[in-house]
Amino acid sequence: MLNRFWPTSRRDFSSLSEQEILALAISSEEDDARIYLAYADGLREEYPASAKIFEEMALEEETHREMLIKMHKKRFGDTILLIRREHVKGYYERKPDWLVRPLGIEKVRAMASQMEEQAHRFYLRAAQQTKDADTRLLLGELAIAENSHHTTAVQLETEHTPHDVREIESQAEHKQFILTYVQPGLAGLMDGSVSTLAPIFAVAFATHDTWTTFLVGLAASVGAGISMGFTEVASDDGVISGRGSPIKRGLATGIMTTVGGLGHALPYLIPHFWTATAIAFAVVIIELFAITWIQNRYMETPWGRAIFQVVLGGALVFAAGMLIGNA
């Protein structure tokens, strides 16, 4: 339970040594080069010009990698530590190429833009944490290079469907809103709505006491909200990932987790058991539909998959609560 509040499976970026920062940068450049080559391969038939640009971006990532390896050899020798982005808390993640196929040009351009923006933030942060002058200079130069890549990716994204500056800024603001509020809030709503089903309905069918059921639901909802909120705050400081303030994300997660659980706990303030249960069941259906709609609207999850994931999960937890309550 405690590691939900203080996750220990990843290192804090601030705790990395300069050798570890260089090793992380090397592995990241390797991964990004492979991703760009995969994008080029997926786009070559339909968008040959864009594919060529991604090939050039991959070559430049390889150049960055070679520069980093030379610096590592100069300072720390030939043995490069095995450290990857999944080992560092708050470090940005890359979605595997096979998860985003078929590769639509708009999706790839947007992802490339995000990749370079995150890499730019990483090098800026890494340079600030480095004391060696040569290493700091190199990381600063790479930050500038990644920023120019970000500009290239934005140009790719707008080449065939140009937008004015106001709309581009609006899109950036919308993306930040999703990263800071929608994604954490959705995770909280799903956790609160689904995870509290079993204890609430187990107590309801075991006791047929609406007040006891409400108290259990209130405790489960508030407890889950606090736990999820602290977990979100502790998991990512948002500096490198670009997901925004951890406090804002933690509040969004914690509040929506609590709301998700209270939705089907509040009906048990009604003294009549079956009336309260019927209303609670209706609220559950509304909650699951709301989660499905948010996934489709903001996370671009297909309706069929969203319904299957949410409804199936909710139904299984609800059934578990009923079976345990009637045992």
Rank of each mutant, 00 (worst) to 15 (best):
I53S: 03
L137Y: 12
R84E: 14
Y36C: 02
I26T: 06
H160I: 09
I144C: 03
G77M: 07
D134K: 09
R136I: 04
Y181L: 14
I286K: 02
G42Q: 02
L156M: 12
M256C: 13
A224N: 13
Y181R: 07
I279V: 15
V284L: 04
G217W: 03
T63R: 13
T301R: 13
I168W: 09
Q309N: 15
R166M: 12
L316Q: 05
R84S: 12
V239T: 10
R34M: 06
A265T: 01
A220G: 08
A119D: 10
L81W: 03
Q118E: 15
A224Y: 00
Y47P: 00
M111E: 14
G313T: 08
L186G: 04
T277H: 04
I35C: 02
H87A: 14
T161F: 13
D191F: 08
R305Y: 12
H64S: 07
S15V: 08
L186P: 03
H174C: 01
Y181H: 10
S193I: 09
T180I: 05
L266C: 05
V165W: 11
Y268D: 02
T277W: 05
W293T: 10
L124S: 07
H272I: 10
R11K: 15
T301E: 14
G192P: 07
I83K: 00
A119N: 07
T207V: 12
I307D: 02
R101T: 14
V203C: 15
K74V: 01
T277R: 07
L266E: 07
K52N: 06
A306L: 10
E287D: 11
Q128V: 01
R85Y: 04
A119M: 05
G242I: 10
I294E: 04
F5E: 06
H208P: 07
F205K: 01
K74W: 04
S241W: 11
T180P: 06
T258L: 07
G325E: 08
Y181C: 08
W6G: 00
E61C: 10
T275I: 15
L16E: 04
F122M: 08
S148H: 13
L68Q: 02
A38I: 03
E20N: 08
T210S: 15
M190N: 09
H87Y: 06
E157K: 06
K73G: 01
T130K: 07
M299T: 04
R109M: 13
G263S: 13
Y47H: 12
S50C: 06
S193V: 11
A127V: 08
A126Y: 00
L262R: 02
D134L: 09
L68E: 03
E287W: 02
H150P: 01
E45W: 11
H272R: 11
A224F: 04
V233N: 00
Y268V: 00
K131S: 13
G188C: 11
I324G: 06
L37V: 05
I270L: 14
Y123T: 04
T135Q: 14
H64N: 05
V259Q: 08
D132F: 03
T213E: 09
A49V: 09
G250H: 06
R125Q: 14
T151Y: 04
G254I: 05
K131I: 12
L37C: 03
L262H: 05
Q171A: 14
A58P: 05
M1V: 13
T152W: 15
Y36V: 02
G314Y: 06
D78G: 15
